[in-house]
């Protein structure tokens, strides 16, 4: 029986990882064919670096992700702190509301924003994408930070207050360092989601404001070249760096709590 389970695990991992490995391997292919191996080369990466469209898309992705991450981390953390610290009438309603942007299919959120922008005459450009990204990022940040706030011992805050610290000092000297891993975790998650988002960006970005994801999609539609494998691999590396950072932070605070 145990053997059968282990075979299942193995098959699931093969299923999950073979496609990813295929993309990475074929990004080093020398030929024009996207899935026929012809020999090792870095040609596609060289082409990629020389492609001004990729650089422009990369710049847009970074601007959107940075702006959306900073704003959503600040206001998401503030909300998480408030929800953890205070008890008030609409508290549960607000907690449930925070989950709503995650429950609604992203295409619905995307077209809702698109009709809204059309109605109030907000021009479609970079700002319209940043606004949209903050909507889903803020929920993720608030949830991650709130989980961290629930996980620690609040008596240390009371101790600080008893010993004469004011609330402001208590927050920056006690609460903030304790929840910092949660905040950074939330920010990393927001950044990754923002960089990777396609559907919402696709609908809310203006003409010419292409991000990396939209660039990949357009290349898919207008003929696949191995350059696509190279861009994908670079985005993969970006994601893996962020996962490692996330795990490293997480591992560190597990050790701290022990």
């Amino acid at each position: 029986m145990k053997r059968l389970f282990e075979i299942n695990i193995l098959l699931v991992f093969l299923f999950l990882y073979i496609p990813i490995i295929v993309v990475v391997v074929f990004s080093f292919n020398s030929g024009e064919q996207i899935s026929v191996w012809e020999g090792f080369s870095l040609d596609w990466y060289a082409k990629l670096i020389k492609n001004p469209d990729v650089w422009r898309a990369c710049k847009n992705s970074l601007i959107i992700a940075c702006a959306a991450t900073v704003i959503s981390t600040i206001i998401g953390t503030a909300a998480a702190v408030a929800l953890n610290k205070y008890r008030f009438r609409l508290r549960n309603t607000i907690i449930h509301t925070l989950y709503l942007p995650l429950i609604i299919p992203d295409i619905v959120l995307a077209i809702a924003l698109l009709t809204f922008y059309a109605q109030v005459k907000i021009p479609i450009g970079l700002a319209s994408v940043i606004i949209a990204h903050i909507v889903f990022n803020v929920s993720y940040v608030a949830i991650v930070v709130r989980a961290r706030l629930q996980g620690y011992d609040h008596t240390v805050e009371e101790a600080a207050l008893d010993l004469g610290a004011n609330e402001w000092q208590t927050f920056w000297k006690i609460t903030f360092p304790l929840i910092a891993p949660g905040i950074i975790g939330g920010a990393l998650l927001a950044f990754t989601l923002s960089i990777d988002d396609f559907v919402i960006t696709f609908f809310t970005a203006g003409v010419g404001k292409t991000t990396l994801s939209v660039h990949i999609y357009n290349s898919l539609k207008f003929g696949i070249t191995p350059e696509l494998n190279a861009i994908s691999t670079m985005l993969l590396v970006n994601s893996i760096v962020f996962i490692l950072l996330f795990v490293w932070l997480h591992g560190k605070n597990i050790r701290r709590t022990i």
Partner: peptide, 13 residues
Amino acid sequence: WINFLIRTYAWIL
């Protein structure tokens, strides 16, 4: 954590 678009594209290959 990996771009959904890329993971889907991989299946074309």
